[in-house]
Design a protein around this nucleic acid. Structure first.
Length: 978
RNA sequence: GCCGCUGUGGCGGAAUUGGUAGACGCGCUGGAUUCAAAAUCCAGUGACAGCAAUGUCGUGUGGGUUCGAUUCCCACCGGCGGUACCA
């Protein structure tokens, strides 16, 4: 019988749905297991071949766990608020809710094509008021909470006001923006407004001034990646940093717990390292430096207080509040210019400018707290305002960057460490202090302690633990997000809005308001719904809804609470979380923070949400690039046989594209190129236009490809395309050196698969051709789950053939379903049990590629042995069912089973079938294999040694020498050392 | 710059974590079947030398540890990803 996968898939999809096969209950006698995929954003571009990689893996694991007797929660939903829907609305006028629902529909259809075992009755989306009601609810809980550093947990804001009214700030150690001191009496006399302002200093959701990327020309705030080289990516308009009052989440309160929690979870070391670096705990000291001619003191943070005697100058960030104060009249112009210049430089560019140090002297001096010497105060953008105090004591002797800065501006250097290794790096702590007064002769590590003691005893500073983690900006000046359930009165005091959910207003015009506030500001009726109050018009960021969604899946329809106590006590936490590494520090840190907050509230029983985490690798795409000569050109060149350039004059300046083979002549970063030619910039072309896409010889554009490219990019309609043989201009190709057809070569580059890189490959056509089961197995067969790899369809034939051959095992020559009912041979049982063991072990290791190999090996073996026994093949169906759910279900029913294979049990492994009584040992001489020899499993070393030494092949290779030593590794090999 | 990952045949990759390098699949070559093709089946396939048996080399490069290294250590080079110059 033919394997008709599309018929079979349609049939079982329908039956499984009718039977609610994948429905999960919140109570069971079975142990629970929660398998979660990272929340997808349903983009208009739909699913590409990279998306399903993780979903297939989690689905296989879920099915495996079910077969092994677990009650498995495996849900799916949508992170549905976001920028693209809003941008689409601006362009087309389609309401974001409408386009989002359409996207979800097609996304869902694509997911349904992949045979996943999601419990769709738990489907959620963050833009549903029934969902964001609870996002708003949690927001208010955090708004009404403060973090008690002594109790190491969040507490109700009422506890804090209560304490203030009785004792003021005395005895309070709270996470806050700035330290405050007042008495109970003062507190009780403050106005309502003053009290509310003070509480903002403590709330876990609070308002503060933070800067945004403001683009005046677009009249809107831009995300970081919408800004490139200081201008907006769209349109290229200038972008400045603009201060605005915004909501923030006090993530920093949880810094230490976020760090400590990493020790309790099974995540990859690389991911933990990323989070640790992001949280960035460092121990050091804050030190106050007196300033010459000023009463203020400059506060700095250093991790190396031991090097204080090496401090020969100070450096402040350009944004530091003291810059104005300390800049003298003579330096003012230079400073103003530098500060302005720095504010336009993106952080990435500051980063790339690493080699050339820039900075300006303020004209003022600080007083060294130990030596009393005057040291100059500089401003440079290698110091960041966001980290520490935004100012440093610069120690050229102990820091590579400070050294480079000193060298650039000819500042003094005082060597204060004699390193154990003369060529040690400047940051090395292996050495002895010199020229450092009371620290002289100490090891660096001791000197750090001694320096802190001295700093504290002189009251010029104290020991301090510092984190580079910053509080997260929680406001977006957008429409398509959760509204804040907050309204302000005339005094600017925030009030809670009830009842929840506070739904988004209906608006028609999604364009930015132009003054920096969101389009919601234009919905005046909504904004002023309550007399005397104005509602907040900003919305929450994307990570709000995705910070707790995994808890909602446990109890998705609950109308009374975000989730019930019984549901969360049953499911507890996510046992396995699979997703991309791009969320390493964003989502994973925010959701851990929310979870810890809910834990402090007693709402969840676990303090970490994700027990085990696997990062699936990226499926990369191959993009095709072409090269554009910078600036319009008046002539193009051809290279003659004599390597000279022959110019062809153009009628007017035109943009010029260059075929790949010609790029070598042009100047680039790594190669000087020809001085008479301009530099090149890369342009990505859509892979659909490229002939021989992905071939090893390289792709190229024909005349047709070029004209199609120009259709899509009318901004280049006048461009010239130069190849080594001719050029394409105004719709025609002109040959110069030969009469060959137009072949404009492009350059293939492996990159992340993304709509913006024009290299997306959609799974639908592959599934149509080979079926879901083959697609699932092929994606797994590509390589290790955690490794990134370019998408390549070449190998799918092999998996397709495998599936067909597996199917055919169950049918005789006449196409009749036929299984042998007699007892299988020991040999056949051995194949089966080896496969049971192998596949089970590999699934537990998430090594799905080797599982597919194991199936192929088993298949080859079964065919060779003609072991078409029911007792062999039926268990094989169960083994393969997590990978190929449709194929397995159909065969399972053909075998006469009445219930689903997906509710069957994983076959039991019986070791006795796999034991060999003979082991083949490789016999090696000095590590080189020279012979093979069978030995009984229980042969002892002495017997093996003696036998081996008598083997003719071994005798020959020993060339009469005597064995110095014979190493016998039981069950592995024999090595003879001569 | 810094951090993380990665490097094995023509290609995707395997190797029980220090013990026969290249499983499995793709591709390629030859054969069977066919009027022919597709499909299917069988055999071969790391490089070099050799008619062959066989030998030598071989896991990015160079060193080291070891009886034995794709695996561990040191230095370097390339690719991919991230990036907040973290004092």
């Amino acid at each position: 019988m033919e394997w008709n996968f599309s018929e079979i898939e349609a049939k079982w999809k329908k039956i499984w749905k009718e039977d609610s096969l994948y429905r999960v209950e919140n109570e069971s006698s079975k142990p629970k297991f929660y398998v979660l995929d990272m929340f997808p954003y349903p983009s208009g571009a739909g699913l590409h071949v990279g998306h399903p990689l993780g979903y297939i893996a989690s689905d296989i694991y879920s099915r495996f766990k079910r077969l092994n007797g677990y009650n498995v929660l495996h849900p799916m939903g949508y992170d549905a608020f976001g920028l693209p829907a809003e941008q689409y609305a601006i362009q087309t006028g389609v309401h974001p809710a409408t386009s989002t629902m359409n996207n979800i529909k097609s996304f869902r259809a694509q997911l349904d094509n992949l045979g996943f075992s999601f419990d769709w009755s738990r489907e959620i989306m963050t833009c549903d008021p029934e969902y964001y009601k609870w996002t708003q609810w949690i927001f208010l809980k955090m708004y009404n909470a403060w973090y008690d550093n002594k109790a190491e947990k969040a507490r109700s804001i009422h506890d804090l006001t209560d304490h203030f009214s009785r004792m003021g700030t005395q005895g309070i150690n709270a996470a806050c923006s700035s330290r405050m001191n007042f008495t109970a009496e003062e507190w009780n006399n403050y106005s309502k407004k003053e009290r509310q302002d003070i509480l903002m200093n403590y709330r876990l959701m609070y308002r503060r001034i933070s800067t945004v990327n403001w683009c005046e020309a677009l009249g809107t705030v831009l995300a970081n990646d919408e800004v490139k080289d200081g201008v907006s990516e769209r349109g290229g308009y200038p972008v400045i940093k603009k201060p605005m009052i915004q909501w923030s989440m006090r993530t920093t309160a949880y810094a230490q717990r976020l760090l400590d929690g990493l020790d309790k979870v099974e995540w990859s070391d690389s991911l933990k390292t990323m989070q640790r670096n992001w949280i960035g705990r460092s121990e050091g000291a804050r030190v106050f430096f007196e300033l010459k001619d000023h009463t203020e003191k400059l506060e700095i943070f250093t991790t190396r207080p031991d090097t204080i005697f090496g401090a020969t100058f100070m450096v402040m960030a350009p944004e530091h509040p003291f810059v104005k104060l300390l800049t003298t009249e003579e330096q003012k112009n230079a400073m103003d210019e530098y500060v302005t210049r720095s504010s336009k430089v993106s952080e990435a560019d500051r980063l790339n400018a690493e080699k050339t140090m820039t900075g300006v002297f303020t004209g003022s001096y600080a007083i060294h707290p130990f030596t009393g010497k005057e040291i100059p105060v500089w401003v440079s953008n290698y110091v960041l305002i966001e980290y520490g105090t935004g100012a440093i004591m610069a120690v050229p002797a102990g820091d590579e960057r400070d050294m480079r800065f000193a060298a650039t501006f000819n500042l003094p250097i005082r060597e204060i460490i004699q390193w154990d290794q003369p060529d040690a790096e400047r940051s090395s702590k292996e050495g002895i202090m010199i020229d450092s007064d009371f620290l002289n002769g100490m090891r660096v590590t001791d000197a750090i302690k001694a320096a802190i003691e001295a700093i504290e005893s002189r009251s010029i500073g104290q020991k301090l633990v510092n984190y580079k983690l910053r509080d997260a900006n929680f406001s977006r000046q957008r429409y398509w997000g959760e509204p804040f359930p907050i309204a302000y009165d005339v005094n600017g005091i925030a009030h809670e809005v009830s009842p929840l959910p506070l739904e988004l207003p209906e608006i028609k015009d999604f364009r930015p308001s132009g003054d920096g506030s969101s389009p919601i500001a234009k919905a005046t009726e909504w904004v002023n719904a309550t007399p005397g109050l104005k509602r907040e018009t900003d919305t929450m960021p994307g990570f709000a809804g995705s910070s707790w969604y995994f808890l909602r899946y446990m109890d998705p329809q609950n109308k009374e609470q975000p989730f019930s106590e019984s549901a969360v006590n049953y499911w507890k936490d996510v046992d396995l979380y699979i997703g991309g590494a791009e969320h390493a520090v964003g989502h994973l840190l925010y959701s851990r923070t929310w979870h810890k907050f809910l834990y402090d509230l007693g709402m969840v029983p676990t303090d970490e949400p994700f027990k085990k985490l696997i990062n699936q690798g990226m499926i990369q795409g191959v993009s095709e690039k072409t090269y554009l000569v910078k600036d319009a050109q008046e002539q193009i060149y051809f290279k003659g046989g004599d390597s000279a350039y022959y110019p062809i004059k153009l009628d007017k300046p035109r943009q010029v594209f260059i075929s790949r083979e010609l790029t070598e002549d042009y100047p680039s970063d790594s190669y000087g190129g020809d001085a008479q030619l301009n530099g090149l910039s890369e342009m990505t072309v859509h892979i659909d236009l490229v002939e021989d896409y992905g071939s090893s010889a390289g792709g190229y554009l024909t005349e047709k490809g070029i004209s199609e490219f120009l259709n899509r990019r009318p901004d280049f309609k006048d461009a010239v395309f130069v190849t080594s043989d001719g050029y394409y201009i105004d719709g025609h190709y002109h040959t110069v050196t030969s009469s060959a057809d137009c072949r404009f070569n492009t350059k293939a580059e492996v990159e992340k698969m993304s709509k913006s890189k024009y290299n997306v490959i959609n799974p639908d056509s592959v599934i149509d051709e080979y079926g879901t089961d083959v697609f699932r197995m092929y994606e797994m067969f590509l390589g290790p789950l955690e490794q990134s790899k370019p998408w390549d369809i070449k190998g799918i034939e092999g998996v397709g053939k495998f599936a067909k051959r597996f199917w055919n095992l169950f049918f005789d020559e006449n196409g009749q379903f036929a299984l042998r009912d007699e007892k299988p041979t020991d040999e056949a049982l051995k194949v089966l049990h080896k496969t049971i063991k192998k596949v089970g072990e590999e699934i537990e290791k998430f090594s799905f590629n080797t599982c597919i190999s194991a199936f192929m090996i088993a298949l080859n073996e079964i065919k060779k042995q003609q072991a078409y026994h029911r007792d062999i093949l039926e268990p094989m169906i169960v083994l393969i069912s997590p990978f190929a759910p449709f194929l397995a279900e159909e065969l399972w029913h053909l075998c006469g089973n009445k219930t689903s294979v997906h509710t069957a049990s994983w076959p039991e492994f019986n070791e006795q079938y796999t034991l060999d009584n003979v082991i083949t040992y490789p016999l090696c001489i000095n590590g080189k294999k020279r012979d093979l020899c069978d030995f009984p499993t229980d042969a002892d070393d002495k017997y093996i040694t003696e036998t081996a030494l008598q083997r003719p092949e071994i005798v020959k290779w020993m060339e009469g020498k005597t064995a110095k030593k014979v190493i016998v590794i039981k069950g592995k090999m024999v090595n003879i050392v001569v």
